[in-house]
Nucleic acid binder design. Structure first.
Lengths: 396, 396
DNA sequence: CCTTCTTTGTCCTGTGAGTGGAGAAAGTTG
DNA sequence: CAACTTTCTCCACTCACAGGACAAAGAAGG
């Protein structure tokens, strides 16, 4: 039986586990340098962790000029499941306790099919990963959903793009199916956690993580912690007004950012442009596929199509304007741009940067990097694994 | 010698001091209920605090059905100075350790006269308060300045409206003059701390505190802590674009919120309206004073002047639009409106509310109070006193 | 091969923080 | 005056933790 049941018994053990997770195998001596404990006390706690099975011995390290150290590491048999439910696709990944992705599956799927259908899909993907020998069991799972979540309970609330999910007990249901602890969060927050853990936001305490996919959202990290807001809807910037009296939005208002730029809006605008004969490139793609997506626009832009480039620039400007306001307000140390439309690459990034650097206060932008996310498709699932591991590696 | 030199020796003592500050005199038994320590340990820590002189015995309390308790309280001779430097005036107040305002002076003064002149003024006001017998000495001072501050060092950085202050070592200089510890922060952050401590935001963890005075700023409180941002400029919302291609702003951009609504903008618009003959009320006031301020507009509005009301509504709408975006982004549990223009009262509040409730997500506004600050002129100085007491009541 | 130095890990004891119970002190209620 | 409450103090016991002594294991140099 290798299923993880133990939890750290105290804050020291929790800190050690997180250290081993983030820094990999380590000797007692090296751990001691980082946790502010005497060697004796540290040895005691490490021994207790070894007893629980959360941590295992990992052979001898090379000498550093004296006696060789006995390394310890997180139990390599531990497995976390990272699930990222997007508006139009589902990602499932298996990681070890150090949050390295061992296997990753992606499946197109419309979230509006509802929780039951989606979870059937998730479970079958998880089963496939397990069948491939990557995991015997599952010690915990993190789930991201594209909408606000009442975090303590793990329940989506009033999600605009996934009405069938309102109030569905995601955490409880999935915990039962998988037989392990489950944590649920907004997908954007998880992307932020992913980039913070293994991506471009390592060692940054306060940053914003803007995800532009089917919709637009923003992960807010304050002092290394995700800020979720009092009802779990923090970061929902898609419905901030970007254009006074602009396009009508599904939410009932006009001029929302999301109505002017997002995967969906971009596709819509591209179709319009193609139909109006503004771009042969887009028109031919429309004829070929019968529809257009952000990917088509990216391809057209890469081919030098002026209309596609304009659409991207225009969207980047809108987005940049909104981000400029948020930067003035929040004064982050970093802005990460991620999500499906990162395929639009530097055209988009340049437009966003221009707006932010022009409109925000110099003091706030003086030393503010605005960069693309590093983890791409992996950000969400890594963040999800991180979420559950943060939970399980905290005292019970 | 009654000057406070001691600091709490550990986290327990710090917690006890803050409890006594916030809840007033208390018995050991009542303290024990709130501090999660055994009675024996608690008694030890209280005794040590008594030894230091930070805390003194305060007689017997009424019986609650058994032996009467011996109350303790913070030393009633301790004095904090709260200083709130605004764009056009200086407030100085003396408080006791429980942060009750014992005396309060206000003096019009232009911050652009520079730190030397302003501090001369502050010191003379402090001397006057001392002379009136309210304070023998001063055990700590908190200072608010109308611009960004590098918080750890207590130095203003790149303040737009007070150029002469850039880099001036406020903390060090004032600490030397007053002979006591000093902490410096942005005035808006202090207002937020004031409302959190003794005002309308008691017991709210996450809230925004919008101060509309000569300029516009926003205090951001996350989990009971003020968020200052990486360069101390968080909350600087005055230069968020509110009107595309709107009025030119001193910052060089166009359409900044502050260019459209703030004490200064309102006065300017009122003069314009008066000169254009749109309002007799305003015109007669202009003739009488030679100039107009937000106070005149408030009076005209109170008298039913349609133009004045329109100006306020218009400004409230602009402000409300920006706040709506921030509410969607931050998802606070409360929005407090304060600052000089709160004299504009419910006309302003109604306009702001309308915009926020209309434009923000229902999930974020569903249970979101938007209220006027409770402390008025006192908010800044109380927040300042709170700032220094938080500092002094933390382990050294 | 042997000595000396370095690093790592273990063992043991002393210290100080903290708990919990006994009981004294000081009330209330009937 | 007896019985019950509440508050406060004292004391003994537990436990977390530090820090030193020491053993184990290796490197470097003669």
């Amino acid at each position: 039986m290798r299923r993880m049941t133990a939890r750290p018994a105290n804050a020291h053990q929790a800190k050690l586990l997180k250290l081993l997770r983030d820094a990999g195998p380590n000797s007692r001596a090296q751990l001691g340098d980082q946790v502010d404990l005497s060697r004796s006390k540290l040895a005691v706690e490490v021994d207790r962790l070894l007893e629980t099975g959360l941590v295992v011995a990992d052979g001898l390290a090379a000498s550093r000029g004296g006696r060789r150290s006995h390394n310890v590491r997180l139990n390599p048999e531990l497995r976390f499941l990272g699930v990222d439910i997007g508006a139009t696709s589902v990602d499932v990944a298996v990681t070890n306790a150090e949050l390295e992705v061992l296997g990753h599956l992606n499946q197109p799927m419309d979230v509006r099919e509802g929780p039951v259908a989606v979870f059937e899909q998730v479970l079958s993907m998880a089963a496939k990963l397990r069948a491939s020998g990557l995991a015997e069991g599952c010690d915990g799972a993190g789930i991201g959903v594209p909408g606000p979540v009442r975090f303590p309970e793990g329940v989506p609330v009033a999600p605009p793009i996934m009405p069938g999910w309102d109030g569905f007990p995601v955490r409880e249901a999935l915990s039962q199916e998988l037989g392990c602890p489950v944590m649920v969060d907004n997908d954007v927050n998880l992307m932020a956690m992913g980039e913070m853990h293994a991506g471009v936001a390592r060692s940054v305490g306060d940053f914003l993580c803007v995800k532009i996919g089917t919709g637009i959202g923003c992960g807010i990290v304050v002092g290394g912690e995700v800020h979720r807001g009092v009802t779990g809807s923090a970061g929902d910037i898609g419905h901030i007004q970007a254009v006074p009296d602009g396009r009508p939005c599904a939410c009932g208002n006009r001029g929302c950012l999301e109505a002017h730029f997002s995967g969906a809006a971009l596709a819509r605008d591209a179709v319009e442009a193609a139909e109006q004969g503004l771009s042969e490139e887009l028109a031919s793609r429309l004829a070929a596929h019968g529809t257009l997506t952000a990917v088509d626009v990216a391809a057209a832009a890469a081919a030098g199509d002026a209309t596609a480039l304009d659409l991207i620039r225009e969207g980047g400007n809108r987005t940049g304007q909104v981000i400029a306001g948020l930067v003035s307000f929040f004064n982050p140390g970093l802005v990460v741009i991620g999500g499906g439309v990162t395929g639009l690459g530097h055209t988009l990034l340049a437009a966003i940067r221009t707006q932010v650097y022009r409109q925000s206060l110099p003091l706030a932008t003086g030393n503010l990097p605005i960069v693309l996310g590093e983890l791409g498709q992996n950000a969400g699932v890594i963040g999800a694994a991180r979420l559950i591991s943060d939970h399980l590696f905290s005292p019970a």
